[in-house]
Write a protein that binds this DNA or RNA. Sequence first.
DNA 1: CCTCTTATCGTCAGCATGACGATATTCGGT
DNA 2: ACCGAATATCGTCATGCTGACGATAAGAGG
Lengths: 225, 225
Amino acid sequence: MGHPPFAVTVDLVVLTLTGDELCALVVRRGISPYRGEWALPGGFVREDEDLPDAARRELAEETGLPPGTVHIEQLAGYGAPDRDPRMRVVTIAYLALAPDLPLPRAGSDAAEARWTPVRSLRAERLAFDHDRILADGLERARAKLEYSPLATAFCAPEFTVAELRRVYELVWDTRLDPRNFHRKVTGADGLLEPTGRTTTRDGGRPAQLYRRGGAELLYPPMLRS
Amino acid sequence: MGHPPFAVTVDLVVLTLTGDELCALVVRRGISPYRGEWALPGGFVREDEDLPDAARRELAEETGLPPGTVHIEQLAGYGAPDRDPRMRVVTIAYLALAPDLPLPRAGSDAAEARWTPVRSLRAERLAFDHDRILADGLERARAKLEYSPLATAFCAPEFTVAELRRVYELVWDTRLDPRNFHRKVTGADGLLEPTGRTTTRDGGRPAQLYRRGGAELLYPPMLRS
DNA sequence: CCTCTTATCGTCAGCATGACGATATTCGGT
DNA sequence: ACCGAATATCGTCATGCTGACGATAAGAGG
């Protein structure tokens, strides 16, 4: 009773908010299979590398970001026998959320990389089973906004309540009442930590600047209903 | 730039309620490494097998259950370089929830199998990184009871409100007010479907029997707080 | 019948929520 | 200096969900 050999990769669903759209990072594949088509960034796990390390390495290679700026968590494993025509490949997908970023740079085996609005990705096709992986990542992100402080991962280190609200509105594709939202997030325990400073970058009356608080759980949760 | 060979396995966190305890299925390993020690059931993914199929196959091998009785979902992937001394192994863990079951039978490479109360597993050590996997599975189960109808997976096809409440009490290790619980679950949309029949198997006044409804999401959620 | 046990319904105060009015504080223009 | 326009922040109020707990219903066993 042996064990067949597999290749193991990590793939990344990297989300950010550029302008007024929720965007995912996609790369144009430079090598076969699916050469020339769009896919999620990712690559093989190395000989002595743990899975989260591989995911962070690929993320750094594709985005050139200083680590620590980006929230990253495991999404799920995918291993259908025919998902890669070359051989049996199991991929561990990771979900990464980042604030508005410098343009991504092309990685080693990616000819080109760009941010694509998720709205337009419903129509486009990604290589392999990456459509499914992206959909799972989006659903995870949307769900976790409800009961975790994950929305702050889309914000710069210091942010206003309005910027946080914009995160919810763009990710959920909905509109939220500014007054009720303000009451809720400022009342949530450990979500926001006031800096005492203010900004007028959104125009109008100056807004308080906050940092993320230490809470791991958002209580009470923000329900979509 | 090659890709190192991996072995891929599935491991199972199988939970059930026996008597008045939350229990997990563990097997005594019949082969090296960790021969003779307790571990989660699992095994290698076969050449042409999808991951969920492998998980269901292992589950059937270890429990001998008719498939369809058991809820199963993917938990997470684990792939630390040193998690198996033999070679590089990535495992995809699955979480399975079952109603009270016939005794498990030993599988091919498991000398012995038994239900162990999770309370006593905090002290015991499982092989590989299975302590961590079990802890993750427990946390997932506890969390999903809050916002999904998952608790019904621990119940027989027809069950009473009190039996459902016992699921929550044992998994969360807490006590819930029977009257408020009853109001909440009978009011939740699509959670319970009355059968019209009753039972007195718990003594006292006969209780309504319900089947699971079609809801995928529990609204409003049951919060632990 | 009486008691014990469990199921189920009601009541009530407190908190969170959604809808929305009111006020504060800046900017840009005149 | 004054006037909108824009945004932030606070307040109000009716509604619904929740937790605490009383009351009643319906069976089993003496």
